[in-house]
Amino acid sequence: MIRHCILRMMAMIPLLGLISLLAFGLVRMAPGGPFDQNRAPVSPEIERALRDRYHLDDSFAAQYLRFLKGCLVGDLGPSLKYRNHTVVEILAAGIPVSAVLGGLSFVFALGVGIPLGFLAAVGRRAWGDWLAGTLSLLAVCVPSFVAGPLLVLVFGVRLGWFPVALWGGVDHLVLPVITLGTYFAGRVARLVREGMTETLRQEFVRTARAKGVGEMSVLLRHAFPLASIPLLTYAGPLLADLLTGSFVVENLFQLPGIGTMTVNGALNRDYPLIVGLVLLYATLLLVLNFLVDLVHAWLDPRVRHA
């Protein structure tokens, strides 16, 4: 088991190297340098000094190696748009915002989705089906950039219950979390409903009932743990989706998180920032997927020995 973990972690390193090479190469392919005449008009001597300072005249391999060395000591270079800040500083400012938003949306998605899916599975067929059907339809067909502006319009502008944008107190979080979390609550509800209906049809549930175990206990202690395994498998992609979903939500509500930075970085052609963000997302996702696999192996012995 420990050997398996170490192997998996070792496998991440070349993968990250490859991703960084791709991102770095793509960005270096783009035309224009940060100190071109039309971007920052300076005298030729100063330009030469600047290019020298940032090693822009070295070969690609040398630049990439220097970048990798920088990565190892936590230095991703300077931002081109925000001249006084390094990429690491900008990321450090944005990560807490995105983490709070993503974490709360995750809790919202599970907190709303699991009970709903559970009720849909064990409740009477008519309304259970209706509920799950409506939610999954909502989940698939109403994207956050349709729901978000409408929520802002109704609850922010017309009713004035919540602030329409920006980052501040708890009330600033309500609309973004609902906008981001609703879609995933629908997905979670659907997964739980399917897992529960499949599990409840299995023999061991019948055995438990035959033994005289109470209905509540059958549902919660016997069926639910097994039924929640597909949910766990989904947790990895869910977190990935929460990260990318936050592009729209952060942009819509003008939250200073890494989603907004990604979009602005792309619009401003801020190459070092983009490379830094790609590496950040890739690392985050690889680690998350790794953790999900670990928990999966721990819950389901069949996976462990596969």
Binding site: L15, A23, L26, V27, M29, A30, P31, G32, G236, A240, L243, T244, F247, T262, V263, G265, A266, R269, Y271, I274, L277, V278, Y281, A282, L285, L286, N289
Partner: peptide, 22 residues
């Protein structure tokens, strides 16, 4: 499998950023 675990939208954003000009 590896590509599955990546946020694909980010690839497109990088592509748009880097290659659109040329």
């Amino acid at each position: 499998d590896v590509l599955y675990s990546m946020p694909s939208i980010l690839f497109i954003i990088v592509l748009v950023t880097a290659v659109q000009g040329p």
